[in-house]
């Protein structure tokens, strides 16, 4: 399980615009880099990031080989109701990492 840093405000007012920051520990291997033996290291990047808020997709992104290791994604949401925000990252190996954060909206 790779490490992830997720920053979601614990509390927000209804209708407030909140900033979400996420970072996942991932090498984002481009597939163009030769290893010590001269052969290319197989590509392994995060291809898809999806954020859902109470089950509904509110933000998603396609990632490409030029994006740095440990990709950092920041975006804003409108706080509508208390619930769970889910983050999922899927890489070239088909592995999906899921993290969740709770938000209380008053």
């Amino acid at each position: 399980m790779a490490r992830a840093l997720i920053n979601v405000p614990a509390k927000a007012k209804k209708g407030e615009i909140i900033e979400i920051k996420t970072m996942l520990s991932h090498p984002m291997e481009t597939g163009f880099r030769p290893a010590a033996d001269g052969k290319l290291v197989p590509r392994n990047i995060i291809k898809r990031f999806v954020c859902t808020y109470d089950g509904e997709a509110v933000f998603s992104a396609d990632l490409f080989p030029a994006i740095s290791a440990n990709p950092f994604l920041s975006f804003t949401l409108v706080a509508t109701n208390s619930g769970v925000i889910t983050f999922s990252w899927t890489d070239d190996n088909g592995q999906t990492q899921v993290q969740t954060a709770k938000i209380e909206v008053a």
């Binding site: 490490r3 840093l5 920053n7 920051k21 970072m23 520990s25 290791a69 440990n70 950092f72």
Partner: peptide
């Protein structure tokens, strides 16, 4: 300056 964007914090978690 921001621990949410400092990638060194991933090593801290490890």
């Amino acid at each position: 300056a921001d621990d949410a964007s400092n990638p060194g914090m991933l090593a801290v978690l490890d």
